[in-house]
Deep mutational scan, measured.
Amino acid sequence: SYYEILDVPRSASADDIKKAYRRKALQWHPDKNPDNKEFAEKKFKEVAEAYEVLSDKHKREIYDR
């Protein structure tokens, strides 16, 4: 789930989600993982997609249904 990707509970606040996104984006940024760039790019995209949905109140409500 998007919550698992960002490592936050379903009850996470918008601020918690933003902090988790920043932490995970740094962790999986391809430039930070030169030895495993392809895998890092995949993870980085997953993190971005999760944040896009969970950071938008309307999209998150739909996702949580």
Rank of each mutant, 00 (worst) to 15 (best):
Y51L: 03
A20C: 04
N36C: 14
A50G: 01
I17P: 02
K19S: 09
R23W: 10
K45R: 13
K45W: 07
Y21V: 02
V8F: 00
I5R: 05
K43L: 07
Y21G: 03
D35M: 12
F39I: 12
K59S: 06
E41Y: 09
S13C: 06
Y3S: 00
Y3C: 02
E4W: 09
H58C: 13
D15T: 10
D15I: 07
H58L: 11
L54V: 02
K32W: 08
F44T: 07
S11N: 14
K19Y: 06
S1R: 09
H29D: 14
A50Y: 00
P34R: 12
K45F: 09
Y63Q: 02
S55R: 11
R65T: 12
I17W: 00
E49Y: 07
K37F: 15
P9L: 08
F39K: 08
W28M: 04
V8A: 05
V47L: 13
E46A: 10
R22F: 11
D15G: 12
R60G: 02
I17E: 00
D64T: 02
S55F: 05
R65N: 15
W28F: 08
D35A: 12
A12D: 01
D64L: 04
D7N: 09
R23E: 14
H29N: 13
Y2D: 00
Y2C: 04
R23V: 15
R10A: 08
S55N: 08
V47Y: 04
V53C: 10
D16P: 01
R22L: 15
K37W: 12
P9S: 08
K57P: 15
K45T: 08
K59Q: 10
K43G: 03
L54F: 01
R22Q: 14
K24V: 06
K37T: 10
A12P: 03
P30H: 06
L54Y: 00
K37I: 11
W28N: 03
S55A: 08
L54G: 00
K57Q: 14
D31G: 08
F39L: 14
K43H: 07
D15M: 14
R23T: 12
E61S: 07
Q27K: 08
F44I: 08
D56Q: 04
E61R: 05
W28I: 03
K57D: 15
Q27C: 07
D16T: 09
Y63K: 02
S55G: 15
I17N: 01
N36R: 12
N33H: 15
H29A: 13
I17A: 00
K57W: 08
K45I: 07
D35F: 15
D15P: 06
Q27S: 06
A25R: 15
H58K: 12
K57R: 11
Y3G: 00
R22A: 15
P9T: 07
K19I: 12
E4V: 12
S1T: 11
F44M: 15
N33M: 07
E46R: 05
K18L: 15
V8S: 02
K59A: 13
A12T: 02
E41S: 12
S11E: 13
D35T: 12
A25T: 12
K32Q: 13
L54D: 00
V8C: 08
A20T: 02
S1I: 05
D56T: 04
R60Y: 03
K57Y: 09
H29W: 07
N33L: 05
E4S: 11
D15Y: 12
N36W: 09
I5T: 07
H29R: 12
Y3W: 03
Y51H: 04
L26N: 11
R23N: 13
S1Q: 10
S55Y: 06
E38N: 09
K32N: 15
Y51T: 02
V47E: 01
N36F: 08
R65E: 10
N33G: 03
L6P: 00
K18N: 14
E52C: 11
H58I: 15
E4M: 10
R60I: 02
L26Q: 14
A48V: 15
D35W: 12
Q27D: 07
K42H: 08
E38C: 08
H58M: 11
K18E: 15
N33T: 05
D35K: 07
L54K: 00
A12F: 03
L26K: 12
V53D: 02
D56N: 08
Q27F: 12
D16R: 07
L54Q: 01
P30K: 06
Y3D: 01
K24R: 07
H58Y: 13
D56H: 05
S11I: 08
F44N: 04
K42G: 09
R10F: 13
Y21T: 02
D64H: 03
E52H: 10
K43Y: 10
D31T: 11
K45A: 12
Y21N: 02
S13L: 05
P34T: 13
A50N: 00
N36K: 08
A40K: 03
K59L: 12
S1W: 10
H58D: 14
P34A: 10
K37D: 05
Y21K: 02
E38W: 08
E38K: 13
A12G: 05
H29G: 09
D16W: 07
S55E: 06
I5K: 04
A40W: 06
E38T: 10
P30D: 05
V8K: 02
K32G: 09
A40R: 05
K43S: 06
A40Y: 07
F39M: 13
K37L: 12
I5Y: 07
N36I: 09
D35P: 05
V47S: 04
S13H: 06
K57V: 14
Y63L: 04
P9W: 05
I62R: 10
K57T: 14
K18P: 01
P30E: 06
V53R: 03
A20Q: 05
K19D: 15
K42D: 06
K57S: 14
R22K: 14
R10T: 11
K19L: 14
A48G: 09
V47C: 12
A48R: 13
P34S: 11
D64C: 03
E41L: 15
V53L: 03
S13R: 05
K42W: 12
E38F: 07
L26M: 11
E41K: 12
I62D: 13
I5G: 00
A12S: 07
N36V: 06
D64Q: 02
K43P: 02
Y51K: 01
S13T: 13
D15S: 15
D56F: 02
F39W: 15
F39Y: 14
A12I: 01
P30V: 06
S11D: 15
Q27P: 02
P34L: 13
K42T: 10
E46N: 05
I62Y: 12
V8N: 00
I17Q: 01
K32P: 03
K32D: 06
I17T: 01
R65L: 14
K32Y: 15
H29F: 06
E52N: 11
V53W: 05
K45H: 09
V8Y: 00
K37C: 06
W28Q: 02
P30R: 04
E49T: 10
I62C: 12
Y3L: 01
D7R: 04
I62M: 12
A50C: 01
E46H: 06
K42C: 12
S11T: 14
D56P: 01
E38Y: 08
E49W: 06
R23H: 10
P30F: 04
A48S: 14
H29I: 06
N36E: 08
V53P: 00
D16H: 06
R65K: 15
S11K: 09
A50R: 01
Q27Y: 11
K37E: 07
I17R: 00
A48C: 15
D64E: 04
I5A: 07
V47H: 01
Q27W: 07
R22N: 15
P9D: 09
K19R: 15
S13D: 08
K57H: 13
D31W: 05
K43F: 07
A25I: 13
E61I: 09
N33W: 15
A12E: 01
A25K: 12
D31C: 10
Q27M: 08
E61T: 06
K24W: 07
N36A: 12
K42L: 12
P30I: 06
K45E: 07
E52T: 08
D56E: 04
A50W: 01
V47Q: 02
R23M: 11
R65C: 12
D16N: 07
K32H: 14
E41I: 11
E49L: 09
N33S: 06
N36G: 07
E38G: 08
K18F: 13
E52G: 12
H58G: 13
E41N: 10
K59Y: 05
A25Y: 15
H58F: 11
E46F: 05
Y21C: 05
S11G: 10
E49C: 08
F44K: 04
S1H: 07
R65Q: 15
D31V: 06
K57I: 12
K18S: 12
K37N: 06
V53E: 03
D35G: 13
Y63T: 02
A40G: 04
I62W: 11
P9G: 10
R23K: 14
Y3T: 00
A40V: 05
E46P: 02
E38S: 11
Y51S: 01
S11M: 12
A40T: 05
Y51C: 04
R10Q: 12
K18V: 14
K18A: 14
H58S: 13
D56S: 05
K42A: 11
K24D: 01
K59G: 04
K45G: 07
I62A: 15
V47K: 00
L6A: 00
D7F: 04
K32F: 14
R65H: 08
E61K: 07
A12C: 09
F39Q: 09
